[in-house]
Structures are given as C-alpha cells and as structure tokens.
Design a binder for these strands. Structure first.
Ligand code: SF4
Ligand code: SF4
Lengths: 133, 133
DNA sequence: GAAATCATGCAAATTACGAAACAAGCTGAT
DNA sequence: ATCAGCTTGTTTCGTAATTTGCATGATTTC
C-alpha cells in the first residue's frame, strides 16, 4: 500500500523542473545530483514521463529535459499514474470482474469511494501551486 | 499502490463472521470454501487477526472463529492494518526522516493530508453497517 | 568525428503468494 | 482418566511477480 520509489522520484524531478521554469533545459545528470536520485534510474523515469507526454526531451549536446506543458496544467495524478500506472486501492476498483463477488460486495463501494476521493485530491494539486505556495 | 490480497481475504472473512453473528463459531474450513479463499492461506490470516485482537479462536473439535468484539466496533481500518501493517501512501508519511528533504517538501504535506482522509474514511466504516446497509 | 545525452536491456533484491507438513489444544466417547 | 478425532496455530518451503539499480547502446548536436 504505497506508491513506488519511481513515482516519488518522478514527482521530485517534475518539481525540480517546475521550480526552474520551462525555458531552461535541465540535464538528467543535474536533476539526479540535486534531487538525490540514482542517475541511471532517473533516465528510465524521464523516458516514461516523455512517453506519457508530461516532459519533452532533447538529445545531443546541450540537450536536456523540459516540461511539455505549463506547470499549472500538470497534476500530481498525471505524474504518479505515468509511472505506476492507474492507482487502485484494491484490485476490484477498476475491474469488478476480477472478484467472484463483484458488484454485490458492500466493501467494493467503500473502496471505490475512497479511490475517487484520492483521485480528486491528487488531480486537483498542480505543480504551479506546489512550487509557489 | 494496492492493499494485498491477504488484507482483502481478511476483510471477506470478517464480513462473513459479521453476517452470521457472534454466537456461531465458524470453522476456518467453511469460511475458506464459502469465500473462495485458499485454505492454508486463510489459517495464517486468522492467526494474525487473532493476535490483533479482532477475532477469537477456539481450537479442537467444535472449535472455530468468532468476533471478539461486536461488528459495530470493528472498522475496515482495523482489519486492513492488522494484516498489511500501517497503511502509508508514501514512505515519508509516517517517518519524514527517510527522505533527505523531509519536512521542507510541499508534496509531503499533500500525501499526509490524503493519508489522513483515507484513514478517516476507513476508520469510520464499521462492519455492522457494511452487513446491514 | 567527438562529446553529451537519452534510450534500452539485463541482473540482483525484495516482496507477495500459495501450499504443505507439523505441532498443539479442545471435545466427547469409552 | 484416557484415547481418538477434529480443528486451529506455527513453521517451512518454493514459486512468481515486482521493484530497484546498473551497464551498455543508440541518437543528436556541435
Ligand atoms: S471481496 Fe469485495 S472488496 Fe474484495 S475484491 Fe471482491 S468485490 Fe472487491
Ligand atoms: S520528496 Fe517529498 S514526498 Fe517524496 S519522500 Fe521526500 S518528503 Fe516525501
């Protein structure tokens, strides 16, 4: 019952980028140093964030990473789900057919409600307010 | 980002016990059959629930498992934490010292808030209302 | 072509899952 | 009282999946 370290690393990276503005291209190397992230591990995370459309990468000399959208339009949920996949408190939340009891289970509803609340909270927090506030 | 199957199994077991009342002693065998839980797995779960003080077990012939408290005084949180241990959305929620940024991290606060909300929700749902409602 | 950088693949470590075998306690009949 | 049978508690093991981290390769700019 925890987000993975990858997801937390990803959040730190996006925080770092948000704090430095979209104009500057930051090298993965520098991000890793400043945010205490294993370098070769961060590379893969950046890659996934790129595929998810959160960041934009530039290869070659003078390359680096930038946000592909304004920080105000990137939510915690975007980053976490880009790395860990859809977050589900219980396996039945997204697909009720995995359990023989499925829809007839009262607990199922509780998990779904809690899940929705969590999604709303994470979806409502954008990185602009995280950095400035 | 998911509770373990053990925790869900535990919830099913307690649901089953709550539905049948505290007066009846149910054999682990029967619970496993009706709730589609691997028998040898459920034994370990029952044991942990017993240690946590949620259920009371009786060995020997005519033995079985009963709730040690009225269903109205057992919350989802009790059962889940008895099995999975304290639930934490991120490792820094309970112990901020695991991260070099610790208290100075804005994201940390968000996780703590979300964590509190989740705890409250799970703590407020007792098995009496789950069964009857 | 060389340097800097992202991208991909591979291995160790940890954890979750399930099953089996064994030990211990209770009941009730003898 | 004693013994046999039933039921939970504990321990151990093996498998599978996930997580984490590292090393190497591919790509672009200068
Ligand atoms: S028993 Fe209920 S809560 Fe558990 S997986 Fe099935 S539907 Fe979901
Ligand atoms: S970076 Fe912030 S959110 Fe992540 S572990 Fe550290 S304190 Fe917690």
């Amino acid at each position: 019952m925890q987000i993975t370290k990858q997801a937390d690393y990803a959040v730190r990276a996006v925080m770092y980028l948000s704090a430095h503005g979209r104009r500057h291209r930051m090298a993965t190397n520098k991000i890793a140093m400043d945010q205490k992230i294993p370098l070769s591990f961060l590379a893969k995370i950046i890659s996934q964030l790129s595929i998810a459309g959160v960041v934009h990468t530039m290869r070659g000399a003078k390359g680096g990473v930038t946000l592909s959208r304004p920080a105000s339009e990137i939510s915690l949920l975007d980053v976490v789900e880009a790395i860990d996949g859809p977050i589900t408190l219980n396996e039945c939340v997204l697909d009720a057919s995995v359990c023989p009891f499925g829809e007839n289970c009262k607990v199922h509803e509780v998990w779904c409600e809690a899940h929705t609340d969590l999604m709303n909270k994470l979806g409502a927090t954008d990185f602009q307010t995280l950095v400035s506030g």
